[in-house]
Simulated scan of single mutants.
Amino acid sequence: MSGDQIGNLIYLSVLGAALLTWLLVRGRLNLNKMAQHMAVWVLIFFGTVAAIGLWDDVRSTVLPRQSVFGEEGRIELPREQDGHYYITLDVNGAPTRFVVDTGASSMVLTRQDAQRAGLHPEDLVFLSTAMTANGSVQTAPVTLESVALGPIVDNRMPAYVNGGEMDTSLLGMTYLDRFARVEISNGRMVLQR
């Protein structure tokens, strides 16, 4: 259990104790009514805890996801809560989540994503340098055997593996240039071949 979770548990316990004390002081003359109120508060408490615990599952079920219309060569991506567009591609057969970055010139993999795709970061040569918002980082050029999204497959894709720390792989213009149309409207990004 992390420190934040322990803090939340203590806070909720104190809040529950305060509510229980208030109910006992307020309803000491009418125990039946007090038991009813207490049951309602317990249900509210457990309902709130359940809603918070299940929020990520509910949100991922309710919010729109990426859609692939293979016969039309079209991909639709919804804008996420953080304002970015994300896409999951199979890189050398491994599902890899990318943030779509029109400001990046290339496809850039994190070390972890490169390893999942069958590349061994310890065998890579980090010769090139990339300029990022956080300064320059060393990168290693690689060639990805396949990058697929459903029936849309690109072979022998040039990419880089980031030598620095990076949370999510970047999908830059070397991949986006393979589409005839890239459009953003109404909170959706449409990629059309």
Rank of each mutant, 00 (worst) to 15 (best):
160 Y>F: 15
125 V>E: 14
79 R>C: 02
134 N>D: 07
26 R>G: 02
41 W>K: 06
185 S>P: 00
5 Q>G: 00
138 Q>Y: 04
68 V>M: 10
55 W>I: 11
122 E>G: 04
126 F>K: 03
65 R>A: 15
47 G>E: 02
21 T>R: 10
159 A>H: 10
141 P>V: 06
134 N>L: 03
158 P>I: 01
104 A>Q: 04
56 D>A: 15
11 Y>L: 14
150 G>F: 08
173 M>A: 02
106 S>P: 01
163 G>T: 03
54 L>M: 12
11 Y>S: 13
129 T>C: 03
184 I>M: 13
142 V>L: 07
125 V>R: 12
66 Q>L: 13
157 M>Q: 14
188 R>W: 09
59 R>F: 09
133 A>P: 02
125 V>Y: 13
163 G>S: 08
82 D>H: 04
143 T>S: 09
18 A>E: 07
117 A>N: 07
160 Y>S: 10
125 V>C: 01
192 Q>G: 01
66 Q>V: 12
115 Q>E: 15
76 E>R: 10
177 D>P: 00
11 Y>P: 01
175 Y>C: 02
47 G>R: 05
189 M>A: 00
149 L>D: 11
87 I>F: 00
158 P>S: 10
41 W>H: 09
181 R>Y: 00
54 L>E: 10
172 G>Q: 01
116 R>C: 03
160 Y>T: 03
126 F>Y: 13
86 Y>E: 05
132 T>N: 05
69 F>L: 14
167 D>V: 10
41 W>V: 14
55 W>G: 04
159 A>N: 10
120 H>F: 14
57 D>C: 01
151 P>D: 13
46 F>T: 13
126 F>I: 03
155 N>A: 09
116 R>E: 11
186 N>Q: 05
65 R>V: 13
21 T>H: 07
53 G>P: 00
